[in-house]
């Protein structure tokens, strides 16, 4: 039940990122000039008939954000009450702190007329909140708890594997680096969006008709960095997923996020190109934002699953596996994890 709720929280966080993308894409960030009120109304009492123009995007974003904040509060409390692993309980508290900080950043950026550093931080912290909620959803899942060993009684042919998650150090490194690169790329993308550099290079795939822009200014440089970042991230994703598909094809917990990552990458690159070619059509632009976030959390899931065996050994038996066991797994918070 907790896992299902955590998945709901993660899904609503993704929806919130899409709503936030719509606010920026429609330039509606200042259509509600006050915060935390909306045109003097308590946020939840703002009349529906007054939700016109840019207010529809900004106020809806605030309502979804409040809902997500409340859900994360419930999730943190739930974890605090019923979760036995201290580090997972702490994750809940960190997610709560992060979403509160995120809300405050959102308010500040409105009251201070969208200063670039605040808006970029708001966009970047949103990804972290998404990562945190997704991580909680992952580590509360049954698969994570049994270290991805096959369920008892599951035929080998169906499960595809029998033992616990492999301790593949190369995959762990490649996946972690890939996730870090994706996050950096998103921060560069947020910088591009909030500094108005989204169309600084107006053509695609060439740049001013050439492979390298013939002239430069700060906005062109930011835009160029985002395109170069896309190439680097694509190569990193191909390396990580290629490694999984070559060496761990039978491990469904690694294969599935890898395949999803490839689909999301193709979608994301297409959306990025269409964003430029459509002159930043706002739906395409917002889908590009939320797909980027999806790429990030999918890569994070792959990374965490690749590290699963190391979690199991976190209290001193790094690399050991706890196939199918819950009682003996220190990562479950038994055996001294209540301190």
């Amino acid at each position: 039940m907790l896992h299902l709720f955590a998945m709901l929280v993660a899904a609503t966080t993704g929806l919130l990122i899409f709503a936030g993308g719509l606010v920026t894409s429609t330039e509606s960030g200042l259509s509600v000039p006050d915060w935390p009120n909306t045109y003097g109304y308590f946020m939840f009492f703002f009349p529906l008939e007054k939700m016109v123009g840019g207010i529809r995007y900004e106020h809806t974003h605030r309502l979804i954000a409040s809902t997500v904040g409340f859900l994360i509060l419930v999730l943190a409390a739930w974890l605090w009450r019923s979760e036995t692993r201290n580090w997972v309980r702490r994750l809940g508290s960190i997610a709560l702190a992060a979403v509160i900080a995120q809300g405050i950043l959102g308010g500040i950026t409105v009251l201070w007329y969208l200063p670039d550093p605040i808006s970029i931080a708001h966009a970047s912290l949103a990804q972290i909140v998404f990562c945190l909620t997704m991580t909680i959803a992952l580590v509360t899942s049954p698969g994570w708890k049994r270290a991805y060993a096959a369920k008892e009684g599951t035929p080998l042919r169906r499960s595809g594997r029998q033992g616990p998650a492999p301790d593949d150090r190369l995959l762990q490194r490649v996946a972690a680096v890939t996730t870090g690169l994706i996050y950096l790329q998103i921060v560069v993308g947020a910088t591009m969006r909030h500094t108005g550099a989204g169309l600084a290079i107006p053509d695609f795939p060439l740049m001013f008709g050439q492979l390298i822009p013939p002239h430069w200014d700060p906005k062109i440089a930011i835009h160029f960095a985002h395109r170069v970042g896309a190439v680097i991230v694509s190569l990193a994703i191909l390396a990580a997923t290629g490694h999984v598909l070559y060496h761990h094809r039978s491990r469904a917990e690694l294969r599935r996020p890898s395949l999803l990552l490839l689909v999301l990458l193709a979608t994301q690159v297409t959306l990025g190109a269409l964003t430029v070619l459509s002159q930043k059509e706002f739906i395409i632009n917002s889908l590009h934002v939320v797909t980027g976030a999806s790429v990030l959390v999918t890569s994070l899931v792959l990374t965490l699953r690749a590290h699963r065996s190391r979690f199991a050994g976190a209290t001193g038996s790094r690399g050991r596996s706890y196939a199918g066991s819950t009682e003996e797994d220190p990562a479950y918070g038994l055996a001294g994890d209540h301190a």
Binding site: A98, I104, T109, W112, P115, P117, I118, H122, L125, I128
Partner: peptide
């Protein structure tokens, strides 16, 4: 991210 963001804005 939260700290950097709140420290950088010129209100």
């Amino acid at each position: 991210t939260a700290v950097i963001g709140s420290a950088c804005g010129g209100g």
